[in-house]
Computed example of a mutant assay.
Amino acid sequence: MSRRQQVLSSYRSLLRATRIAFNGDHRVFTAARQQVRQGYEAGRTELSADPKHYEEVDKRLEHASGVALLLRSNIVQGELQSGNLSKKNMAMVDPSHSSVQSEGGDVYKLRIHKHTELGDNEAVKGGKSNLAGTSKKIRWSN
């Protein structure tokens, strides 16, 4: 595959990843796509097809691939379902549901899709396998 085809393929991959990650949130979706477009336009003007730039192009392609993977698998959006945004920035997450309830009573619906990474965190827990009564506290920053 030529470098031009690799660059176009990574560009399309990033655009697909933004569609998956930010579907339904027009403002963030548009901003993400604009950011991708600006990054590739900047690369077009900074780098040429000269072989001395191949290493830099390869680094940027690897970075784009990582960003696309991160967007697809690790970004989860939440939408406020009821009540107003609470002054308390603490929430309880129940791993068996796709919603989050803050201590102020607000409920956030999480948009988890088929590409979302749903690991079991065994490495983080140090090998513990008992998940009974598991819940996590998350600090939400404003």
Rank of each mutant, 00 (worst) to 15 (best):
N23C: 15
D25K: 08
L8T: 09
L80T: 05
N84V: 14
G119F: 07
A49S: 09
T30M: 10
I20K: 07
R44L: 13
R33D: 11
Y11N: 08
L69R: 04
A42N: 06
R33G: 15
G105I: 04
K125M: 13
R16F: 11
Y108R: 09
R37C: 13
V93P: 08
R60A: 07
D120R: 09
N121Q: 11
V100L: 14
S13V: 00
S141R: 12
D50Q: 04
Y11K: 10
W140H: 08
R72A: 14
K87H: 07
Q81H: 04
R72E: 10
L8P: 06
N130R: 12
G127D: 02
E103I: 14
N84K: 12
E62M: 13
R44E: 08
V93W: 00
K87Q: 14
H26A: 15
K136S: 15
R139H: 03
Y54E: 13
R111Y: 07
S141W: 01
R72V: 00
R37P: 00
E56A: 09
N142E: 12
G78N: 06
L8W: 08
A42S: 11
K114P: 08
R60K: 15
T30A: 10
G133A: 09
S2C: 11
V107K: 04
A17M: 04
H113L: 12
S9F: 13
E117G: 06
S82F: 01
T116S: 14
R27T: 12
L85E: 01
Q77P: 01
R72T: 05
G133K: 03
V7C: 04
I112Y: 02
Y11H: 10
L69Q: 01
G83C: 09
V57R: 03
A64S: 15
E117F: 15
K128A: 10
Q35V: 05
R33I: 04
G105Q: 04
K109C: 03
I138C: 02
R19G: 15
T116F: 07
H53A: 03
S96K: 09
